[in-house]
């Protein structure tokens, strides 16, 4: 608990606070705050997913489903039944938690590719439900008319207001998750990742911890989904498809599996690449995207989070060469 590096988090928080101001000063990046809202929303998912994958060592190719569950519960209950948006958010998280526990309990007994397939199947099944239950979800064309968020009459109706709302939650989730990692729970998770039989022999209740982390990551994804729905005022199933689940994996892999910082960097990089920077390549965009991804996996096996280590390694080698 004591070893939390407070300084980097403070610097990061400061950066988040001043970012919209910077973006406003430079016309060329005026829309970056808008993109950062989505980075924040996706960070909520990848922070949880990174705990699940990087620390507990459990793969999931189905997290788009939890993202979608949050979005659709918020969307349907507020747009069709006029319920309070914050209450719907909590309902969404509860439902996501229950679903995660029900799916996770049998699935997390599976290993490796079998777990990957099980979560992938779960994700596709949920996607099909979004597509098919047209009465509720509006089907493939999606549902519109989802209201924005407000609290005590304060409307989160501009890009910047929503930005601060979302990033406030991201920072809270971040600090909480880092705390978890540095607590006994975090040690238990790492033990599970290293060797399940060994962890079990040490008295770690392996399956309970795995399900707990799975549920936690699902709840965060559901929260992200609610924020997404209220920001766009619209949702459709293709946002929550298999390819989004894979994109989440890519964000985590790119950032570095074993670091929450990596997850945030990977999320930011992939989001900006696919929503803004690669736009200039037009038809080549998809190829450039693939090439960047391949280069990172080949050159940086530990992702962006591994860059400092590599730089240090160069430096050390240089020093030893000089000797």
């Amino acid at each position: 608990m004591l070893r939390i590096a407070k300084l980097p988090i403070a610097i990061f928080a400061l950066f988040i606070i001043v970012f919209p101001w910077i973006a406003r000063q430079i016309p060329a990046i005026g829309n970056y705050t808008d993109i950062m809202v989505f980075v924040g929303i996706y960070c909520l998912i990848t922070i949880g997913l990174s705990l699940l994958m990087g620390y507990a060592g459990q793969i999931s190719i189905g997290h788009a489903a939890f993202f979608g569950i949050g979005a659709y519960i918020s969307g349907v209950l507020t747009a069709k039944y006029g319920m309070n948006a914050w209450a719907c958010m909590v309902i969404g998280m509860t439902v996501a938690a229950v679903v995660a526990a029900l799916v996770g309990a049998p699935s997390l007994k599976l290993k490796g590719h079998y777990l990957a397939m099980a979560t992938l199947a779960f994700g596709i099944i949920v996607f099909i439900i979004f597509n098919e239950e047209i009465e509720w979800t509006g089907g493939p064309d999606g549902m519109s008319g989802i209201p924005g968020l407000s609290i005590f009459g304060f409307e989160f109706d501009s890009v910047e207001r929503y930005y601060y709302l979302v990033w406030g939650f991201v920072l809270a989730a971040f600090v909480f998750t880092v705390n978890v990692i540095q607590s006994g729970t975090g040690r238990a998770l790492r033990a599970i990742h290293a060797s399940e039989p060994a962890a079990s022999a040490m008295g770690v209740n392996v399956s309970r911890f795995k399900i707990l982390v799975f549920v936690y990551s699902a709840v965060l994804a559901s929260l992200a989904g609610s924020f997404y729905a209220h920001y766009l005022n619209f949702i459709n199933p293709s946002t929550f498809d298999l390819f989004f689940s894979i994109k989440l994996l890519i964000m985590i892999a790119l950032g570095g599996m074993h670091s929450i910082w990596g997850a945030i960097m990977g999320t930011g990089l992939i989001t900006f690449l696919s929503y803004e920077w690669l736009r200039y390549f037009e038809e080549f965009e998809i190829i450039v995207y693939g090439v960047i991804l391949l280069f990172v996996t080949v050159l940086l096996p530990d992702g962006l989070a591994g860059v400092p280590k590599i730089v240090k390694g160069w430096f050390r080698r240089k020093v030893s060469d000089e000797r």
Binding site: N31, I35, L232, F234, T239, R279
Partner: peptide
């Protein structure tokens, strides 16, 4: 011209950029 890839999020961002920027 902006490519949306048929993605709702990307399309929303592109339209806002067209208007404000």
């Amino acid at each position: 011209i902006y490519d949306t890839e048929g993605d709702a999020t990307k399309c929303n961002l592109a339209v806002k950029k067209l208007i404000t920027q």
